[in-house]
């Protein structure tokens, strides 16, 4: 079955892990070849750039900033565009010569979160990774698998939907408490 970009976006949005892996593999080799020319002095970073670009694309889909309606080119072009932007940033930092190719890629907005800033995002990322159980599982079920509290209660063997809700709230509060002293707010 031939997939369209609409299908791919739908699968990513639905968190279909099997299809996300397929879509990741689909663009991988071509992207790496493309990126090796862009990052000819930083070949070690090529796979990192692909993975970061892929995650940016998925995040934009989850935030509904990229969807079937506003995708003006192809999903592949979007992904390569994100990669191009990242490569430019890397090359600029290393003072490499700028690319002479004509830039055919659409404008990709910066993927740095405007809410809390890059440093704070990293702190939060670490805190989430270090969460114990059952909190980590509850948050994954709610925010990744998008399960309802009834489903979470059943799967995690809580006595009621309210028990699952309360547990999720306590987990969130615990995490926020841990982050309180560490996050720096910029006014």
């Amino acid at each position: 079955m031939k997939l369209t970009d609409t299908d791919r976006i739908a699968y990513i949005r639905a968190r279909d892990e099997y299809m996300i892996q397929k879509i990741y593999s689909l663009y991988r080799d071509e992207f790496l070849m493309f990126m090796r020319k862009r990052l000819w002095k930083e070949k070690d970073l090529v796979l990192d750039v692909y993975q970061d670009s892929f995650m940016v694309m998925c995040s934009k889909i989850y935030e509904n900033k990229l969807n079937e309606a506003n995708l003006t080119s192809s999903l592949k072009t979007y992904l390569f565009g994100v990669g191009e932007m990242k490569a430019r940033n890397i090359n600029r930092k290393k003072d490499n010569l700028p690319s002479k190719d004509i830039d055919n890629f659409p404008d990709i907005e910066d993927d740095v979160d405007e809410g809390l800033g890059e440093e704070n995002e990293k702190i939060i990322q670490e805190a989430v990774k270090e969460m114990g159980e059952p909190c980590h599982t509850i948050l994954v079920k709610q925010y990744w698998e998008r399960k309802s509290t009834e489903e979470i209660a059943m799967e995690m063997h809580y006595i009621s939907r309210n028990a699952a809700k309360t547990m999720k709230y306590k987990c969130m509060q615990k995490l926020k408490g841990e982050l309180k002293g560490k996050i720096v707010y910029q006014n």
């Binding site: 993975q51 995650m55 998925c58 995040s59 995002e121 990322q125 805190a127 989430v128 925010y143 926020k176």
Partner: peptide, 12 residues
């Protein structure tokens, strides 16, 4: 940001 971090971890 917490929600984003959960998604990012799973994607990784």
């Amino acid at each position: 940001s917490i929600i984003k971090a959960v998604r990012k971890e799973r994607l990784e």
